[in-house]
Design a protein around this nucleic acid. Sequence first.
DNA 1: GTGACAATCTGTAACGTTTCAGTGTATTGA
DNA 2: TCAATACACTGAAACGTTACAGATTGTCAC
Lengths: 347, 347
Amino acid sequence: MDRDQTDKDDEASAHERPTLKTLAFMTGLGVTTVSRALKDAPEIGAETRRRVQLVARQIGYRPNRAGVRLRTGKTNVISLVLNTEREIMSFVSDIIYGVSEVIADTPYHLIVTPYSRSQDPLDPIRYLVETGSADGVIISRTQPNDPRARYMLERGIPFATHGRTDMGLIHPYHDFDNYAFAAEAVRHLAGIGRRRLALLTPPVGLTYHGHTVNGFADALSEVGASEVPFNTVSIDHSIEQIRMRTAQLMRRDDRPDGFVSSAAAATLAVVAGIEDAGLKLGRDVDVVSKQSSDLLHLFRRELLVVNENFRLAGSELARSVLGLIGGAAPGSLQSMSLPGEVVAYRG
Amino acid sequence: MDRDQTDKDDEASAHERPTLKTLAFMTGLGVTTVSRALKDAPEIGAETRRRVQLVARQIGYRPNRAGVRLRTGKTNVISLVLNTEREIMSFVSDIIYGVSEVIADTPYHLIVTPYSRSQDPLDPIRYLVETGSADGVIISRTQPNDPRARYMLERGIPFATHGRTDMGLIHPYHDFDNYAFAAEAVRHLAGIGRRRLALLTPPVGLTYHGHTVNGFADALSEVGASEVPFNTVSIDHSIEQIRMRTAQLMRRDDRPDGFVSSAAAATLAVVAGIEDAGLKLGRDVDVVSKQSSDLLHLFRRELLVVNENFRLAGSELARSVLGLIGGAAPGSLQSMSLPGEVVAYRG
DNA sequence: GTGACAATCTGTAACGTTTCAGTGTATTGA
DNA sequence: TCAATACACTGAAACGTTACAGATTGTCAC
């Protein structure tokens, strides 16, 4: 009996958190055996394995994350990197929920790593990589030539991007088909007789800005409608600015009779601007907008909406990173989400 | 020269992450000395201290979190516990940003711990406590008699609640003065001639439901207005349900001529319901609503709003938890945020 | 010159885990 | 009978950190 040998301090103690040592003592085995039994290693006898796992379950053993992390370097952490000021609000919580859903029955934790406007977006990524704080990273506001993606690709850090890049490099992503969205929006507007369309774009510099612009332009020429330039603002601008610019635009003679807007909050401003100019939605002008929660049709029943599901995006992104960590091929972890139909008010 | 003694594997290696051992080698000191020098221990010579800190800064030393955590039990993690389905969306991201701001220049990380409707809200807390996953916890959806608060208080886990409890126990919190909000809203409505008011309440069971109801009731009798009961829904209900119930209510003869709404999203539904019943905002009925982002006035210019700053709440909560961890008295870490004035459309 | 005492510095052990290199025992083949 | 081999298990070491209990100086009083 090597009991008296082993228990120099542990065991008896009231109710500490159980460790491998505790399990080893209870089962009469060595810590090594217990460790391997718990992870179904082949060199452990079937009965022993079952026995250890039973006891572990009974006493609610949970591996100490710090121990594992120190020994193996595995953090069991997925980091979601967010821009503190720019990210559209509802977007964030939906993504978080989506990620959470997927992560829920894995050993992974979600940590939110913020960065602010003043910082280089690469900063938080560098921090994560240098300190080895995460096994996987999710980034958004993806650019065609994204230094963050390049950086992580170089160091072999698993990551997924919300939005595609365009660097000829393969990595996991999830993206909404903004080309299709813009094109569909234009077709719909043309279908209800609108000929002079304006586009409120995503932030210049982000990949989906290009997609949106292209979809818009291609569909314009397809349906033979024309563009009214509206480049002075993007959805990143403040509500006030968008509103003001829209009002300015709508007071001109060559004003558009249709709008395509890439974000719900911005659409509120566009509509306000339209009304500031004394025009009426649905009569003088129609607006197709993306939205992520089902609220725009309450705002103005005349609004035309296309839904983008950010919760889904979060889930897909989480799945991708986990897949990549699990050794799947990056190319197999890319997904697109297609826009639904343009929907008019169904009330 | 004990160099040749020490470097059995380390040092030479291309560019591993520096550890205390690396620093010890570079400075010619022992790891213990380096460790203490970095934390300004008094028994280290002033010059040595400076020297070590200089070198550490130069090579970008950062303590290994797993090492610290394993040795000391300190996780340097603050956990924000969120209900995956119920939490109002914009709320979440604002809180997260608020917390992030405060946490940014501390060694703390923010982890988001979700739980879903099906679960006992205590589950995630138990998990955090049992696995020792966080040094501090922030919870929301606080109840008057909150089992989570009680649980953490019992085990001495530092936490702060968004919203107060009412158990006679002292703990850090941040709360918006919903009593004052409801009372002010009522006074304002009375001031513009509204006499029959309805209240769309916070979720029953949460502490601020009571606060809101009380503020509403007290102000009603103060101004001599009367209440039109509207208890069938709360802001937790779906947009559709709130809308339907509002419409029902507004079609009755004894309909209210004023509404107080505790959340912006719900207000959209209330307004939709009002209009479904063929009534007009500002003429037949006025609505005072809380909002957390400045969007409601775009929705309907007739809306009356009171702003609640969730980013501030996040910051305050983070400050509180950090303060508590730092040893401050819980009673000194309680804060209230007062509602601003009821603002009409300033367009 | 000795003992006491600061002032600095140091090695060892421990936190919980996994990996490496075994150890012992039974089974097999010859 | 002996070696070879498979099987089931084990101790020691290591990950990076900090706490504990010294160790090595030099200074000072006597």
